[in-house]
Amino acid sequence: MAELNVNGKKYKLDVDPETPLLWVIREQIGLTGTKYGCGIGACGACTVLFEGQAVRSCAIPVAAVEGKKIETIESLEKNGQLSKVQKAWVDNQVPQCGYCQSGMVMATTALLRNTPKPTDAQIDAAITNICRCGTFQEVRAAIHAVSKA
C-alpha cells in the first residue's frame, strides 16, 4: 500500500513499491498527461514536480515519494485558466506532435519558479528534454516570453 499526494489529492494505492511513479500516475491514478518515453530517465517526457523540483517519474520507485508533494501537468490549469507557461506555449505555438510537451512545460515551470528570469545558459542547463519534432527554438522563445511578461 502506497500513500501518495498528487496535485493536492491524497491516494492510498495497492501497488508494488518498486513500480515507477510514472506508471502509478498513469495507470493507478489515471492521469495520462505525464508520458512514457524511455523508462530510464533519459528523455524527460515523464517530468513531474517532486517537492517543487523537476524529476523524471519513470525512474523513481513509488516507495521513494510516499507522502511527498507531487505535481503533474494536470495541476497547472486552474479554474479553466492556463498557467503562464502554458499560455506562452500556446501563444508561441510551440507543440508539434505534442507528446514531449507535458514534460517540457513541467521542466520549465520548475525552472521559472526558482529562476524567474533565466539566461540562455540557465535554460540550456535546465531544459534537457528530448523533442523528436524539434520544437527547441519555440521552447526557448516561449520561456523568454514568460520571463519578460
Partner: peptide
C-alpha cells in the same frame, strides 16, 4: 488542439482507456 497538448488533455493512443 494546441491547448490540449500543453495541459495533458490530448489523448494519444498510449493513453486510451
Amino acid at each position: 488542439g494546441v491547448a490540449d497538448k500543453v495541459t495533458g488533455k490530448q489523448v494519444y493512443a498510449i493513453d486510451l482507456k
